[in-house]
Every structure is written in C-alpha cells, then in structure tokens.
Design a protein around this nucleic acid. Structure first.
Lengths: 243, 243
DNA sequence: TCCATCATGCGTACAGTGTTCGCATCGAAG
DNA sequence: CTTCGATGCGAACACTGTACGCATGATGGA
C-alpha cells in the first residue's frame, strides 16, 4: 500500500487549479449537499468530518472554513431537507385534504431522510432556519384560514402525532436496513423472539399471532396505520371547528 | 466528595443486598443504575464508558464483563426507565381518565429522563425488554377492555401523539438546560432572534408577539398544550367507540 | 490441604472522532 | 509587482468504544 492516497497528483502540476470544471470548490452548499447524501446513504453514525472531507476531495479540517462545527452542519442539513416538506396553500377549500397532504409530506421526507428524526429528537425544533420557518408559517396560515379557535393548539396536535409516528417508523426502518434484509424478511426473523418475549402477555401474544397470520405488505400496513391515526386526530379537530 | 452517592442507602442494606458492605461489586444492575443517574444528570453525550467506570470505582473496560456493548447498556437503561410508566388497570370505568393517566405518565418519565427520546428516536421500539413488553401489554389490555374496534390503531394514535409531543418537549428542555438559564430567561433571550427570523412571516410574527405578551408560566403552558392535543385525540377516538 | 478452574477486574493498545493551530498557497487589489 | 486576506491542509490534542491478554482471588474437587 502506498503511504498515502493522493487525490490529484498530476492535475495540480500542469493545470494549477482545476476547481472550475468538475469540482465545485468546497462551498458551504456543496458541503451540506454531500453531507445529506452521506446521511441518506449510510445513516447518521457513518458521517464524520474526515469521511465527508474525503468525499469532497478535501482535507478533513478544510470544512471548518465554511462550517463552524459539526452540529451547525447538521442544523444546515435539517433546514435544507425541510424544504422538501410541502404544505398546501391556505385557501384550500378542503382543509382535511390539505392537512393530510402536509402531514403525509412530512412523513415522506422523514422516511426519505431517516436521520432527520434522530437529529430533531436530540436538538429539537429551536432551529430557526429559513426553510423550517416558512414551513411553520405555511402551517400557521393554513390552520388560521381554516378557522380553528386555537390554531397553534391544532397545529401542535397534528404535528406531534405526525412527528411521533414518523420517528417511530424511521427508527424501525433504520433497524431493518441495518440487518440487510427486506422488511418482510426481518419481521419473519424477529417473530420468534417477539413471540417468546410476549409469553405471559395475553394481548401481545394475540396481536402477534394475528399479525403473523396476515400476509399484507408491510409498507401498506404502515401507510394504513398512519392514515388511521391521522383521521382520528382530524376528527377530533373537526369537533372543535364546527360549533 | 465521597466516592459515590447512593440513592437509597438504608433499604438495600438490611433488605436484600448481600454484597460486601463498601463496594457494590460491579453488577449489571449497578452499572445500569449508575448509567441512568449520569444520563439524567449530565445528558446523553456526557456518558462514556470511562466516566461510568470511574463513577463505579472501576476501570473503564471492566464494565464489558457485565454488558456486551454500550448500545446494549442503553437498551437496558431504556427498559429500566420504562418501568416508571404507569398504565392503569384495564377495568377502569372511565377510559378517558385511564388513557390520560397513561399518556401523562409516559410524558412525565420522558421529561424526567430527557435522553429517553433521543435513544428511542435512534433505535426505535424494537427493544423487547420485559418492562417495555409489559407496558405494551397493559396498554393493549386497557384499549381492548374499552372496546375499540381497532385497538392497535387506537394505541398507535395516542402513543404517537404522546411520543411526538414528549420528544419535542424533551429536546426543548435539553436545549434550555444547556444554556444554564431558566426556561423563562431562555425564552426571553431567544425572542429577539426568533422575531427577526420571523420577519416576513405574518402568522409567525403574530404568534410570537402574542406569546411575548402573555406572561404565563412556561411549564403550565406546556402542560396545557399537551392536554389540549390529547383531548383532540381522545375525542377522535370516542367517535370510533360509540357506534 | 493443595491444586486446578474460572469468573472478574484492569492496563494497554488500536482505530477512530471533533476540533485547534500554524503554515503554505493563491487570486485579487493597490 | 507587491501586499493581503481568504482558503486549504498536515499535525496534534483530548477524547471515544472496544479487543486482547494478563493478574488475582474465590471456589470446589481430590
């Protein structure tokens, strides 16, 4: 093995700097973008400043010229990803469909970037990034336009439910992904241990046996579960609306 | 400073512990207990195997005789803490009060051990520890005794809401605690930045201004917020019950 | 009583982490 | 052409989780 792997040993000789054509020259945006790619691909504990620097053909400590600390980088990544959450415009006539779409969009992004819930669970929502701010703003606009007596209470209710379900799902999918198996295979392999652990717990054993009998696609099962709970929350909210 | 602070020095002496009088002899239970104490005191990133070993008057690597890995230790800590969640017996006549008590108990423990949400957010609920199992069992017993058509859907709804709200609160309180200020002081210091970040977002600016005008105790505010959302969920559930 | 066995503690070491510091380089401004 | 400020980076520091092998002390059989 050679003593070191030199990123570009020849290029710098004859073409003094090659940053323009292929490499985007280590900007803050490029760093955040690549960090998100690594987080999506290999999970949250696979991201280190050294590996991220290597992926950008840069030294590990060069990143600190553009980002103060790793926590700040995660903050930027969270806000970047928050732009993917779509909240319909406030004037939507069908408020249930609008809120459902917003919640589903949140869940979709949380499952696409499974590290999101981990970061939010550790650092909370006191981030104040522009995309998170406009997400909150659009939610507030939607709920006040609907005419809820306590818009912030209604927002917190549906958002808490959505965060809780998405977090649980994301953690589950992370565990599944770490096993290298498909979701169905992992469930099948986990079932004996779960059944044994449920020995002496009548209701748990019953529900385990029942879920083992049904052969539904686990993705559809999770989708249905999320939709059901969301309907429950929306029903409770609609009671507060018509009065 | 004495070498260790013993939580209940008297009861364990004459009642059941048979170890040597001075050193608790580094058992798995002692390790988990001390780990929880450190997590509660200084947060999740303050716990390292070396510090934990030092607190137990033991070398860093001695712990690995009783615990396979740090992740397993966290798993044990989560299950240990799960025993503090109280779920009323299934025969409670007032199901709303029973579910409310269970949810409140979950929230209380999640706020008492603010690292819990972080761990659950990263590892999920696929833990199968005995205390978590009996927690699930008691919830299942309660909801089926109430007579819900889909007990697991109802459980997931209220549990997701509770987890989401508790996680958000715990992360917020962690941020507050890290500042060294009281919650009110921290809010006061954060307000200018929040207001500035809300510039151009009409609804957010309005709600910020409104919350700045009210001088309510932040603890009471959070309690009310949680209760309101829980009522929403329970209302939605009761619609599914009476039919 | 003596010896073998075995569980437990721990010192050392390894590979990795986030981050600081000072030095080199290089494009642009004066 | 010279200066200067921004940028990249190698080395280093204080940590982390954990594997390995050695010491030690208790236990139980001969």
């Amino acid at each position: 093995m050679p003593p070191r792997t030199e990123p570009n040993p020849i290029a710098s000789v004859w073409a003094r700097e090659q940053r323009s054509p292929d490499q985007p020259a280590l900007s803050r945006d490029a760093i955040v973008r690549e960090a998100i790619a690594m987080l999506d691909a290999d999970g949250i504990e696979a991201l280190s400043m050294r590996k991220l620097g290597a992926r950008l053909n840069a030294g590990a400590t060069s990143l600190y010229r553009h980002v103060a600390t790793k926590d700040e980088l995660m903050e930027l990544a969270v806000d970047e990803v928050a732009a993917e959450i779509h909240v319909p415009d406030a004037d939507a006539s069908d408020w249930r469909a609008a809120v459902t779409e917003a919640a589903a969009s949140f869940r979709t992004t949380a499952l696409r970037h499974r590290w999101l819930s981990s970061v939010l669970g550790q650092a909370g929502l006191a981030y104040l990034g522009p995309n998170l701010m406009s997400f909150s703003e659009r939610l507030a606009a939607l709920f006040t336009a609907v005419g809820f007596p306590e818009p912030s209470g209604a927002i917190d209710a549906v958002l808490s439910y959505t965060i809780g379900m998405s977090t649980t799902e994301a953690a589950w999918l992370t565990t599944v992904a770490r096993s290298g198996e498909s979701e169905g295979e992992f469930i099948a392999r986990l079932m004996p241990a779960a059944q044994q652990a449920a020995a002496g717990h009548a209701h748990l054993a019953g529900s385990y046996a029942e879920s083992a009998a049904t052969t539904t696609d686990p993705v559809a099962l999770r989708d249905g579960k999320f939709a059901y709970g969301l309907e429950v929350v929306l029903d409770g909210l609609s009671l507060r609306l018509t009065r």
